[in-house]
Simulated scan of single mutants.
Amino acid sequence: MKSVLALLLACLVAVASGETCEGAQVDAVGFTSEDATLVTKIAYIADFSLSCSNGAKDVSLYAETFDGIVGVARSVDGVKYQVSWVEDVATAGSGQRPIKLYDEAGYAALRKAQRGNEDTAAVQPIAVINLYHPGAYRGPWVQSETMAILAAIFIYYYALTQKNKLMA
Rank of each mutant, 00 (worst) to 15 (best):
P98A: 08
T65N: 10
T40P: 03
P140I: 04
E104A: 03
A113F: 02
G116H: 04
Y44H: 15
Y137H: 13
Y157H: 03
H133S: 11
G139T: 11
V59M: 02
S53T: 14
F66W: 09
D119Q: 04
A113C: 09
P140T: 05
Q96R: 10
A136E: 07
Y44T: 12
D67P: 01
P125M: 08
P134H: 08
P140K: 04
P134F: 12
E34Q: 11
D103R: 09
I126S: 10
I45N: 07
T65R: 03
A127P: 05
E34S: 05
T40Y: 02
Y81V: 13
T91C: 00
A127V: 09
T91I: 14
G55A: 14
G55Q: 12
D119A: 11
K41Y: 09
G116C: 02
C52K: 11
I126Y: 05
S60T: 11
D58E: 12
A127F: 06
A73M: 02
I153W: 00
L50R: 06
L38M: 10
G95I: 03
V39W: 06
T120I: 15
V39S: 12
P140W: 03
G93H: 07
A108V: 07
S51H: 00
E145T: 04
N117L: 12
L50P: 02
G55D: 14
G71S: 01
T37V: 15
Q114R: 09
H133M: 13
I129R: 08
P134S: 07
I153L: 13
G139W: 02
D47T: 12
R97Y: 14
A136W: 04
V89M: 10
V86P: 05
A46K: 14
S94I: 00
R111C: 03
T146K: 04
A56T: 14
D77V: 10
A90H: 06
S49D: 15
L38N: 02
D58V: 02
